[in-house]
Design a protein around this nucleic acid. Structure first.
Length: 531
RNA sequence: GGCCCCGUCGUCUAAUGGCUAGGACACGGCCCUUUCAAGGCCGAAAUACGGGUUCGAUUCCCGUCGGGGCCGCCA
């Protein structure tokens, strides 16, 4: 494909009528990659023309999510103060652009390319039904198209509400899509569609065309569900004599049932993924591969590498099913690669939220409470274990996180994995202590052996290497066929879980005193139930 | 129903007018191992169907079938 000579200007134009959607995030990413790859501009425009449904909280959600991903925009709302804007083609909220739309609407009316329509919703519904019943696409029949000046005047006098419709010329229209190639449609199927409700409320297709023009958008990169809108938008451009941007329609993201990913598939809200503890690196890498690939077998890409490699030519035509398993796998990969200090910082809010620990200082508490978007350093602090009221340090927590780093798939899992470190007493069925066919007797014996062995280790030597040095040979002596007879009860008595990190690393973190206490607790558990 | 888009393992995908159609996730097995992970090895698994063009089509063309999107005074 030809090189892009002009510096491209692209936009992501979400409407703040609900939680920021995973599909919108993917579209944003592709726009961003295209812009950065070609040294162009990435613009954020808030499409809030639907004043009933648009809410500030959703706009904040959009902004937060994009920033979290690191997809910063060159023009749009100022992320530091959303009442301000950056860029010289604003305003970037459609709700603030009414006067601009009005100007173009008037021009169309004056030139006879659009007209007032006074038909009521009821009348239109009836017509729609009729067309459907005879197997025709439902479209406006043009009742008001040829109203005389006097008739229009009269309706105005009566104070009848009106909409503005375009006079759609009947013709074959085609456009070149950068992903799909040439797309042709017959405009007679479109009818005279509505541009705006009165002069004050422009509708999507109209506002979009005007803004794209005024903001000098060169490439419209959006979801495939917009293909049917494209001919309408081109018709508006032609009526107004505006240049046509290039179009690229990305394949849709599908749910497991192969229909467009939507609320009923569950987690489509982007913030859910942030809360669950997916990392931006994983989300970026994953979303990029939904409809794009580098053409070889590399599979890990950071944002900069994506910018380097991205091209629309390598975009897929066919839709992709959102495969959560692969996201989880990728996330595990990025968690393993995360520096341990950063990972600990990311995990702490989850531990706090689960009520396992709490920050000693109010300031930290506030910071954590705020959200999971925070990656800041301030989180290094002293914490209090809720159940025991012990003070613990950041580095103590770090040791715990470290032994779970390769097991973690997403951050929200961390509390259930490590909760036993913060519990006063563990509760688990005694059968969990039994290795293979071992029962009370053998297990008691194992626990007793462990206690004797561990008691002899000096506090200064209490680290996992020393523990292994002592316990491992003992385990072989205990049962020459299988070390599990000694090691399994150790691990279970310390963690209370059937799956966990290794017993020596756990014991090291727990310390001598607690380790011995937990072994005793296990002995008591077995004995108590024997009676 | 009309119009439009799409069709390679279950999923994300690579390849090409010509080697046994490659990789990844998930799945199964084995190894490692005290468990769970991680890691290593192995395995099962796909060109929707029918015609054409061609020496040769998964690839190009046509049709069928299948899936999806859109058909608002929502975006």
């Amino acid at each position: 494909m030809k090189e892009i000579k002009e510096k491209p200007r692209v936009r992501i134009a979400p409407s703040p009528t609900g939680p920021f959607h995973i599909g919108t995030a993917r579209t944003a990413l592709f726009n961003y990659l295209f812009a950065k790859k070609n040294k162009g501009s990435f613009i954020l425009r808030i499409e809030d023309t639907d004043k009933e449904r648009s809410k500030k909280e959703w706009e904040d959600d959009i902004i937060k999510s994009l920033l979290w991903l690191g997809l910063t925009w060159d023009e749009g709302p100022n992320p530091k103060d959303t009442n301000q804007e950056i860029g010289s083609f604003g305003p970037y909220h459609q709700s603030k652009r009414k006067e601009i739309y009005k100007k173009y609407l008037k021009k169309l009316i004056e030139e006879g390319k659009a007209y007032y329509c006074f038909c009521s919703p009821e009348e239109l519904e009836a017509k729609r039904q009729y067309f459907m019943s005879i197997g025709q696409p439902p479209r406006y029949d043009g009742t008001c198209r040829n109203l005389t000046k006097q008739e229009v005047e009269k309706k105005f006098q009566e104070g009848k509400p009106f909409v503005i419709r375009i006079k759609t010329p009947e013709k074959k229209l085609s456009f070149v899509d950068l992903i799909h190639g040439k797309i042709e449609i017959d405009t007679s199927l479109l009818g005279d569609f509505v541009l705006a409700k009165g002069f004050e409320e422009p509708l999507y297709n109209f506002a979009c065309v005007i803004d794209d023009y005024e903001m000098k958008i060169t490439h419209v990169i959006r979801g495939e569900d917009h293909i049917p809108n494209t001919p309408k938008q081109i018709l508006i451009q032609e009526a107004l004599n505006l240049p046509r941007p290039q179009y690229a329609h990305l394949p849709l993201i599908l749910g497991p049932d192969k229909s467009k990913l939507s609320k009923r598939h569950g987690d489509v809200a982007f913030s859910q993924y942030i809360k669950k503890g997916f990392l931006p690196e994983a989300m970026l890498n994953f979303m990029a591969f939904l409809g794009w690939n580098p053409g070889d077998e590399r599979e890990f890409f950071n944002l900069y590498q994506l910018i380097e490699e991205f091209s629309l030519e390598r975009c897929q035509k066919s839709p992709a099913i959102f495969n959560i398993q692969k996201l989880i796998w990728l996330n595990g990969h990025y968690i393993r690669k995360k520096p341990i200090k950063s990972l600990t910082r990311l995990c702490i809010p989850y531990l706090v939220e689960a009520g396992l620990i709490k920050p000693l200082y109010e300031a930290t508490a506030k910071l954590i409470n705020n959200n999971h978007y925070n990656h800041s350093d301030e989180i290094k602090d002293t914490y209090i274990v809720v159940e025991t009221q012990e003070k613990i340090s950041f580095s103590y927590i770090q040791k715990i996180i470290e032994i779970y780093q390769e097991r973690l798939k997403y951050l929200a899992e961390i509390p259930e994995l490590v909760d036993f470190f913060f519990k006063k007493e563990l509760s688990y069925p005694k059968e969990l202590l039994f290795w293979k066919e071992a029962r009370e007797k053998e297990t008691l014996k194992a626990l007793k052996t462990l206690k004797t062995l561990l008691s002899k280790i000096k506090k200064e030597e209490w680290h996992k290497e020393k523990l292994a040095e002592i316990i491992l040979p003992a385990a072989e002596r205990f049962n020459e066929k299988n070390r599990g007879y000694l090691l399994w009860p150790l691990r279970v008595s310390l963690s209370g879980k059937k799956a966990s990190a290794g017993p020596f690393e756990i014991a090291e973190i727990l310390g001598k005193e607690k380790t011995l206490k937990r072994i005793e607790a296990a002995q008591i558990l077995i004995k108590k139930e024997e009676k």
